[in-house]
């Protein structure tokens, strides 16, 4: 994303959105940001690991990082 319609994301642009299927349940998906940005490991099917972005006191947003093999 090189542009955003949301408040609070101006400093994050550009950012990468990923559609993640959870290991715990087939087709249970979460869309969020991938913190690694663009890179050679970014492709459909790549494994990721959840992390949490503490955006405010008591508020954490799930985000993802590419799983290092």
């Amino acid at each position: 994303m090189r542009d955003t319609f949301l408040p609070g994301f101006a400093d994050d642009v550009p950012y990468v959105l990923v559609d993640v299927e959870l290991d715990e349940q087939t087709d249970l998906r979460v869309v969020s940001r991938l913190l690694d940005g663009e890179g050679p490991g970014l492709r459909v099917g790549a494994a990721v690991r959840v992390d949490f972005d503490d955006v405010a006191t008591g508020t954490s947003i799930p985000v993802f990082r590419l799983e290092v093999a």
């Binding site: 994303m1 319609f5 959105l17 979460v30 459909v44 947003i61 799930p62």
Partner: peptide, 24 residues
């Protein structure tokens, strides 16, 4: 379920499946 994660508006909405298409 989407806005706090940065997904909002149709650009992201169409870019996700279109990127799936391009990679497949």
């Amino acid at each position: 379920w989407v806005a706090p994660q940065g997904l909002w508006g149709p650009l992201a909405m169409i870019a996700l499946p279109y990127n799936e298409y391009l990679q497949r």
